[in-house]
Every structure is written in C-alpha cells, then in structure tokens.
Design a binder for these strands. Sequence first.
DNA 1: ACTTTTTCAGAAAAATTTACAGATATGAAG
DNA 2: CTTCATATCTGTAAATTTTTCTGAAAAAGT
Lengths: 153, 153
Amino acid sequence: MKLDAKDKELLGLLQDNSKKTNKELSNKLGLSVTAVYERIRKLERAGVISKYVALVKPDKVERAFTAFCQIKLVQHTKGNVTQFESQVAGLSEVLEVYHVSGEYDYILKVMVKDMEAYRYFMVNKLTALDHIGSTQSTFVISPVKNTTALSTD
Amino acid sequence: MKLDAKDKELLGLLQDNSKKTNKELSNKLGLSVTAVYERIRKLERAGVISKYVALVKPDKVERAFTAFCQIKLVQHTKGNVTQFESQVAGLSEVLEVYHVSGEYDYILKVMVKDMEAYRYFMVNKLTALDHIGSTQSTFVISPVKNTTALSTD
DNA sequence: ACTTTTTCAGAAAAATTTACAGATATGAAG
DNA sequence: CTTCATATCTGTAAATTTTTCTGAAAAAGT
C-alpha cells in the first residue's frame, strides 16, 4: 500500500493518541470526517495499523523494574530453537524476545516489580526452561525514552 | 490506587484491544455499561492507563530492521549525560533509550528500513552526537515476541 | 477527450459515549 | 449488630461519535 502525506500525518496522530475523534483529526488534516474515516479503514484493512491498545504505567501495576536478559542456547537444533522460543514467549514477565546476531542468541526485555522479583523470575521461570546455556542480565537504571510510534518519513 | 479483579481484567482487555466498546467489555466483565465506563475513567484519572495508541506494522512503513545499540560515554559529567540523553531521545529512529548497568552506559532500540539505513543512521546521526565513546550493535534476526501489555497478576 | 476508478463531502442513520438519578453494596464507627 | 458515609452499581436519556449512503469532484488510464 502506498501512503501519501495525509496518511502519514494520520498515522503520526493515531500513534500518539488513538482516542482522537474523526472530527478532531479532520480539522488537523484539512479533510472531511468521512474522508478521515475512510482513510483509517483503509490503513486498518491494509494492515498498516495492526491494533489499538491502552498503554499502562509500569509503576502502577508493580512492573517498574526493567532488565535486558541475553541468552545463549546450549545447542541450536531446530527443535530446541522452536521449543525455547515458544516457552519463553509464554512468560508474562517477558514483553519482548528477539533472536539476534552476536555473542548471545536472544535478547529479552523483562519487566517485573523489583530486583527480588527478577531474581525469582530468573531462578524459577527462565532457567527452568530447556536448552538454556548461559545468560547475562543488564539492568535499567532509568528509562530515557520509550515510544511505540514509528516515524513515517 | 488499589486495583481489584475487575480492574485487572479490564486492563488486560484494553491492553489487548482498546477499541472494544463498553458494551463488549460489560459483557465480558459481567457489569453494566456505565460501571465499565466509570472504571475506565478512574483508571485514566489515576494514571494507570497512560495513553491509547495505534500500533503500526514496521514493514508497512519501512522500519522492519531492528537493532540494539549499546553505548559508552567518554565521560559521565552531569552536563554530558543530560545533553546526550536529550539528543538521542530526539532521533526518530530510536524508539527506546535506557540508562543501564554493566559494561555499557545505554541501550538503544533502533528501527530503520534495512542494514544500509542503519549504517547511515550510525554514521550520520548517532556518532554525530557529543560525548559518545564507543558503541556496539546487535542485530535482530527475527522478532519472537513483542507486546506492550503488562501482566496485572 | 472519454471512461474508469478513486477520493471526497454532506446528510442521515446507527451505535457509542457520557451524564444523571436513584438503588445497592461496602466499610468504618459506635 | 446497627447506622452512617462512601463506593459502586444499574437503567435511562441526552450528547457525541461512528458508520452508511448518495452523489460530486478529482485523478488516472486509454
């Protein structure tokens, strides 16, 4: 799908606040309400907009502690990889999992209540998984920037 | 603010799809439409829900290439830190920035079109910033899991 | 220049959100 | 255990928004 300037502006606005009404959007874009409506529908149908979500403040739900956990597998058979990925994706503390290049095989973004909860997570959840070789944890001292909005330039 | 079981269920539903109507939510929760409405308002006012956003598929806007970039500063004066954080937060390719423990000072999540665009970003944007000592890049081979939803257990 | 297709605007209908009034539950204090 | 105060709930009605519909304007292709 080809995006014109209005589509991109619309995506920028909706990535920042998806609760804006079509009327508000129509004012900012200089289009009618219906034109905005149709464009949004098209972006949704084309899969450009994948979903709409509410974002929750981590400290309000006891998830203010963030760590990045790098993992090496013992052996990279197809079965091992598939099984590990499926298991780790099932852990609610793990928000993001990436198979990566470099010394380690995976990077995980983990959010829990505090360091004690992280220790518990490592001991009882993560290292309980199969095929894990070694791990290395990096702790977030302070989040500087955290956005879900992709630039559309 | 104290969250009861219904609040937590509501947060789970809205973190998965914020476009659900209050009527749909009221069915799932076994509450009236107004009760759902009031609970959501309260969660918003208390700051538990920070914002509502549209999520965009990276490959649809030429941002399918993800890298983690670790950075060391040359010297950690307060001025340097503040200036670097402000500058790096201003880069649209950089979705997340964390001040972290360990060998490196910062971890960045960077999303661009491809490796060529990443090279361009590193040479012309990132290393153009002040106070950067060394960097190390880790490339995402495949994203395994990526959610914005925090567990409310 | 003509046709086809896409995009747009405005009005009307449908659905949803929001405000309101009163009932029910919950918790603290006597 | 009762009473008061506070919270939360339900159902209705009003306000707002979304969605549909019709036709005009613009854009693209032949």
